[in-house]
Design a protein around this nucleic acid. Structure first.
Lengths: 663, 663
DNA sequence: ATGTCGGCCGAAGGCCGACAA
DNA sequence: TTGTCGGCCTTCGGCCGACAT
């Protein structure tokens, strides 16, 4: 394969050393989602240009699509030689026509799972800590959280007085750093002393940066760094008050001159800055990528996961799912952000204030940053005005349902959003938005059995939870209910009651399938056996008996379809199992709940109450209660899971399960 | 003017800041000769490629001349942002045909002089010191040589106890550095203390590097650095034992890690190395320059004066002069090199061992590195095997004269050396090398008055002088003799008695005018009045009366022609003043003694015996004894010059003059 | 459990005159 | 005149437990 861009970069960066994928992801942070190898994605030139942090002139490509369907042909995990900043080179092969459809399946079935497993393992073996002032201070050591010392570091011999050992850690370049690890003080605590200061200075770390310890599969201890982002969200402006500590990052790096005059001298050239100037991604690269993409040739993009701009190579399924939603002003949603110290992920609630194409002149039909939003906590997200639809998650569709029957159909010509995948014939859907077979604006007409919002209700999150450092909602029981129990009303958020969608002038309601599709009774219109089952954070949990049953059935995995593929595959045919027929169960759990796949909803943190130590659990890999039980038992080293195990997902909702089996 | 290369470089180095020419030359060192603006030069692509320190593939320019006549259209004095290394961008406009001839005159008459004046001033206002171990040590200060403190630094108030002041020095980027200057200790000495260590660290200086203090015209004190070259001469290999101290330059720059392991980590990326990797001049630049040069378009070259490769943009007159010499194996010569610490210039003696084109395959007719040489002190110049003819200076032509009458004329076909200037019709000269009007191989037939080598004898240097730190030959009287005193025999060097030229097989004797032309009686065949005059290191010194006389004469300045232009202008006409007729005296003193112009022969160091402080004197600017006397008086602050003033030139020859006038 | 502080100690930085070349 | 050295003082780096959160 001819790869011009790659060879270009080779010349400036002769020695490319590929990182371990685990370490790379640990450094990239929890928000980073690199699409799996051979999966189908959309490439957004617009986002690529944004990533380059420069104004890119695309005039030479007048007709390039704002989103180019591609297959991921290669992924290289790399790290900047100077700053240790991780980045990836993603090889993309543009797709067209039938190719999209066919290959999409391959990607979904073949490789998605492998990636998720990797991520799971990483979570188990790595620990990230944000450096405190004391950690980053010159004369100091590093306070090692007990959990890290006990689970990641080599076993310490506590019989010595004091217990000490030497820690060797490999960084992203394979260089080994040496630390003295001591367990001392009153009360006892783990500390890194000798060697730590040198590490801080060499890596130019400041308070707010994070260090990642990871125990690799071969037993090596790895050490990565994750620099604090200057601001939350995607804008170039720094949000006020958020993470200001890291903005002034030079104070502890350089001795100021004797009279203070020479500090000016030393900081000029880029070698001395701890973070390279933001020209990682060159304009030329963007142009070249766009050129090749437009002409259907393979190309390669460079992506810096910590560059504070949204990802521009997005899993096709996520984009498709987002495009199926009929976005309306007034919709309530939540969106994930990395916290200031990059240690956690916070979900921020907001309301869609407007749905309009971001840059109609240059990218007339682009869904990129389609949604203008108003945040419940606008202070922290001042510079986040527009977001990508596939990054937000609706928390309740009730306002849409309540209001749309009384709002007049929008007479204005809709903006045509490009959507080049063959699987989703835009023209059909858009040309007749009011046809019975496709969803109406704010009026889903194919909901037959009313609201069955139990699954969504599970994600309801009061905004007061957002700033809890610990999840303390704990001990109230989780009501497991079989999905086919009808009549269960969702727990509604009563935020802004969506005046926008009701007022006559401004509402823009765009595209396709209503979000209330999510609430559609999953088994409706399927050949699905109405098997009783349980859902944990939207992830169906079956007994092993149920699995063997469903496998023996015609399309057992499809029983859990939320209705996406019904609409996708057969806009005029309500009963469809054809598209994903014969898919093995593993695949179905991934693709059939794409809304849940986004942003780690399948990952739950499991706390053992006696320890207050959370372990992460990938629900998507659990196919039975038995499997869950085994996993939990091995996690906590006990043979039985007692009732004090509390489940909590990233949102902060917590559940307590009893010792008795689910079913 | 379209200048592709320039604009290319602009993009990578956005802010080009031009240096003061004086500071630039002070940093570049005494060996650097940048040809004057608008002067005519030869551009050597071969040397350019060598400068890039890479193998450049010139196959795309099959017929590019190895030396391209050009006019210097621009000179930019610049310094590397990171390393402070000075470099120049020289704009060149290829010349052809008549253009060469005409414009050469303009260059010679118009601009050469201005440059020399600059250099003179710089010498007077700057001081360079090579850092000792103590200077470069971490815990130390800087020992300021008294001369530097008293002539370059601001006046110190000695009434205080101790006398202290703050020194502010601007570096090449205009940044100001602050030093505490104190005069203390027993015995008293000048020191820089506070601020010095910081400077050393920031600039990553090591013992062997030099610091240059310069008092600019506006009174500002400037501070430049001049890093030690890794080896003397032009090769890429480091000569053994020479300047080894600087080769290991990292010891004092970085604290080694606590356990020593992290020093490995810190030194990897190029930002931490004190000298950038040797890719200053890119291959692409060389190719591009060659392309433009071959097609006659203007181009620009980047030249790093401290890159240890010979200059590749050479004053046309110097090349022409060298090409007129009939180079023969066995010829004795000297060549200037910068000393290890770059504080002085040493002349090394050698013998031409062979005359053959360096790279006959790629550059079949190139004079570049034409001479293969054997050094009298081969140890120090192990890697200098081949040198450019215009860089060597014959010290005696006696072997040629002695031997050539008995050696048979070389029958082998001569190698054709390209020489594209119109003024020197190669074809004529080469096609008939034995014609009476052009010099024979080793047999000058146009010497009419025997040997008159007084001028050359003045430059004879015994190799034992080379390593003297001080010029101590001092006090023997200098025999001033009018030039038209005939019969004075030169002081011959009796080194290797040139067996090569006598042996039948190997001698290659190439090109044109015999070196004994230098010994030709200058006034012979001229319209010159046989005015008695004195020559100081080859620089004629007239009384003011003589000047006014010669100005009123037809070609007064030409009286001092050494015969170059006779041969050049009129190969078949022995009496010629036409070429340089009407030249003002200033111009003539420059161009008519080109051999003396090279390598600062016109600069003498003047020592006041009571002080042992040398001042530099530019003889070429002196046009009368009175002027010399005035200059010396003002230099030493005395109204009369007593007999204890000793003259010594860079070679080490010293002269003592009396109080009485020359004439 | 762990962030921050002051105390303490040793190393390095840095200024000094002595002394010698 | 000036390079180098040892002495001496200060500053900084860095390890420690105390204490508070």
């Amino acid at each position: 394969m001819i790869d011009i861009m790659h060879s270009l970069e080779k010349t400036e960066n002769q020695f490319e050393k590929y990182l371990d994928s685990q370490l790379w992801h640990a450094c990239a942070g929890g928000m980073t989602q690199i699409p799996p190898l051979n999966s189908n994605v959309y490439y957004f030139p617009q986002g690529h240009a944004e990533h380059a942090a420069k104004n890119v002139d695309f005039r030479s490509f007048p007709r390039i699509s704002p989103l180019v369907p591609c297959r991921v042909s290669s992924i290289k995990y790399l790290a900047d030689v100077e700053t240790d900043e991780v980045f990836a080179k993603i090889g993309l092969v543009p797709l067209r026509g039938r190719e999209c459809e066919v290959d999409d399946e391959v990607g979904l079935l073949g490789f998605d799972r492998g990636f998720d497993r990797n991520e799971e393992k990483e979570k188990l073996n790595s620990f990230a800590k944000t450096l405190t002032q004391s950690d980053a201070n010159n004369g100091g050591g590093f306070s090692v959280p007990r959990y890290c010392a006990e689970t990641i570091f080599p076993r310490l011999d506590y019989s010595a007085e004091p217990p000490v050992q030497t820690i060797l850690g490999k960084d992203v370049h394979g260089e080994v750093w040496k630390f003295r690890h001591i367990y001392r003080g009153t009360p006892r605590r783990h500390l890194l002393t000798t060697g730590w200061s040198n590490f801080v200075n060499q890596k130019k770390l400041v308070a707010g940066d994070s260090i990642v310890f990871l125990r690799a599969e071969n037993g090596d201890l790895c050490v990565g760094i994750r620099r604090a982002k200057l601001g939350i969200g995607g804008g170039s402006e720094v949000s006020s008050g958020w993470n200001t500590g890291a903005a002034n990052g030079t104070s502890s790096l350089y001795k100021s001159g004797f009279y203070g005059f020479s500090s000016e001298s030393g900081l000029k050239n880029e070698c001395d800055s701890r973070v390279k100037e933001k020209d990682n991604v060159k304009i030329a690269s963007v142009i070249e990528a766009a050129r090749l993409a437009a002409s259907g040739q393979p190309f390669e993009v460079v992506y810096y996961p910590r560059a504070s701009t949204p990802e521009f190579v997005i899993k096709a399924s996520a984009v498709r799912a987002a495009m199926r939603v009929q976005w309306c002003p007034g919709m309530r949603f939540k969106m994930a952000f990395e916290t200031e110290d990059s240690s956690r992920i916070s979900w921020f609630m907001g309301t869609i204030s407007s749905v309009q194409v971001d840059d109609p002149i240059h990218w007339p039909n682009s869904p990129w940053r389609l949604l203008q939003v108003a945040w419940d906590e606008p202070d922290l997200l001042q510079n986040v005005k527009r977001v990508n639809p596939w990054l937000v998650e609706l928390v309740s569709s009730i306002p849409t349902i309540h209001l749309s029957p009384f709002s007049p159909p929008n007479k204005r010509p809709r903006q045509h959003l490009e959507f080049p995948f063959g699987q989703l014939p835009m023209s059909t859907l858009l040309s007749n938005p009011l046809s019975p077979s496709s969803p109406l604006c704010c009026l889903p007409d194919n909901i037959s059995t009313g609201i069955q919002g139990a699954r969504h209700a599970q994600f309801v999150l009061s905004s007061s939870d957002l700033h809890l450092n610990k999840l303390q909602m704990g001990l109230r029981p989780f009501d497991f209910k079989p999905l086919d129990y009808g009549g269960q009303h969702p727990q509604f958020i009563t935020g802004n009651p969506l005046e926008n969608c009701n007022s006559g002038g401004s509402p823009h309601c765009l595209k396709m399938e209503s979000s209330v599709q999510y609430l559609k009774k999953p088994n409706e219109g399927k050949n699905g056996a109405r098997t009783p089952m349980f859902v944990l954070f939207g992830q169906p949990i079956l007994t092993e008996q149920q699995i063997s049953q469903s496998c023996s059935m015609d399309a057992g995995g499809n029983s859990f379809s939320d209705g996406y593929h019904d609409t996708v595959g057969h806009t005029s045919n309500a009963s469809g199992s054809a598209v994903i027929q014969n898919s093995p169960p593993e695949a179905s759990s991934d693709e059939e709940f794409p809304r849940l796949k986004d942003q780690k909803h399948e990952h739950c943190k499991v706390f053992m109450e006696s320890e207050d130590v959370g372990r992460t659990l990938d629900l998507s890999t659990l196919r039975s209660y038995e499997e869950l039980h085994r996993k939990l038992s091995s996690m906590f080293g006990r043979s039985t899971i007692s009732s004090i195990v509390v489940y909590s997902n990233a949102v902060g909702a917590t559940k307590l399960i009893g010792d008795e089996p689910f079913g």
